[in-house]
């Protein structure tokens, strides 16, 4: 709340404050460390790998930024992604005899994913806004529901896309245009649209107002419930988009798909400078947060400096450091 006021009060063209620079500095430091430790770090192939694998969490985290900015939370996104992936595979496999391998069946799969995502998001949003149940409880519930549904659909095993279909669909993850792979392009588009919505459009201001102070927002003629509902629906839609990019990679979904994605997405949002209590959000900051998280993994894999047992420790320390850097900076300014 405080930050939103201070930011709003500042002239737009002032030098960026440390709260803005904090995550950027953390990212730059990581890139420098990565380059020093391994010469392949900045190679096109490695950069593509890191960006492409960030895309799933990244696309979801863009939606999560809006939900958190509006004062909500969604723990169900990882399970939801697994469920939608499973549903998509089942539908595409079932439609294979009638549609055959081709573009229509891929479009059908994509439509199923987007529709399922929006519906799942609307269900979360409806329970939270209309029925007034705590977002934490609702999404904890749906998290368990989707996780067990995907286990049930897969009969405890793994759902696999038909081999021919997979080969046909595979380029959606691995190919691209002008040497940039599709997941990176889709991620970038989601970020650009998200950034415009957040900082230039009325919807972004309504989200911030809702998360900042629900009652004041209400008296300022902001439809608080509808704004919240839209954020969850939008997040659901983006989970669907992420799933569309995820399924062609390995062509399978199981109970272990998307485990802990919700926490990674929330961590990325917070590292990026969005306030967990709501009221202020920064989409581009979320992107930095996502990149920091996946770059740590990448660097740890590329070096032998620390025992693999300690990967979690390094991640935890860097996440906390990145946030401390911002707080320190805020205190100074």
């Amino acid at each position: 709340m405080m930050t939103s006021e201070t930011t709003a009060a500042k002239p737009r063209w002032a030098l960026p404050s440390m709260s803005v620079l904090g995550p950027v500095i953390a990212l730059v430091v990581l890139v420098v460390i990565g380059t020093m430790l391994n010469s392949n770090f900045l190679s096109a192939a490695n950069i593509t790998n890191v960006l492409a694998r960030s895309a799933f969490i990244g696309i979801i985290a863009v939606g999560m930024t809006f939900v958190i900015t509006a004062g909500g939370l969604d723990l169900s996104v990882g399970s939801m992604a697994a469920f939608i992936a499973g549903l998509m595979i089942l539908v595409m496999n079932a439609a294979l005899p009638s549609l055959g391998v081709g573009v229509p069946i891929i479009l059908l799969g994509m439509a199923v994913a987007l529709l399922a995502g929006i519906i799942a998001g609307l269900i979360n949003g409806f329970l939270i806004t209309t029925l007034g149940i705590e977002a934490f409880i609702v999404t904890l519930g749906t998290m368990g529901i989707y996780r067990s549904l995907v286990t049930w659909m897969a009969d405890g095993g793994t759902l696999s896309l038909d081999f021919g279909l997979r080969t046909f669909y595979r380029p959606v993850y691995f190919d691209g245009i002008f040497g940039i792979s599709w997941p990176i392009i889709v991620f970038a588009l989601a970020v650009i649209v998200g950034e415009i919505l957040m900082s230039r459009a009325r919807f972004g201001r309504h989200c911030a107002a809702t998360g900042s102070n629900e009652h004041v927002a209400h008296y300022s003629n902001v439809n608080v419930n509808r704004t919240r509902l839209y954020t969850y629906a939008m997040l659901g839609l983006l989970v669907g988009v992420a799933t569309i990019m995820y399924v062609p990679r390995l062509g399978s979904a199981s109970a272990s798909t998307g485990v802990l994605w919700e926490l990674e997405a929330i961590a990325a949002v917070i590292i990026g400078g969005t306030i967990l209590k709501g009221g202020f959000g920064r989409v581009w900051g979320t992107v930095i947060g996502v990149l920091i998280l996946s770059m740590i993994d990448n660097i740890l894999n590329l070096t032998d400096l620390v025992s693999p047992y300690l990967n979690g420790t390094i991640q935890g320390v860097i996440i906390i450091l990145a946030v401390i850097l911002q707080r320190e900076a805020k205190a100074k300014s």
Binding site: N38, N49, R53, R249, L250, S256, T257, D297, N301
Partner: peptide
Amino acid sequence: NWNRDDSFDVMQDFLSK
């Protein structure tokens, strides 16, 4: 971690390294 996605990421990085 006996997980397809994790092993995909790890193997990509092994191949870069």
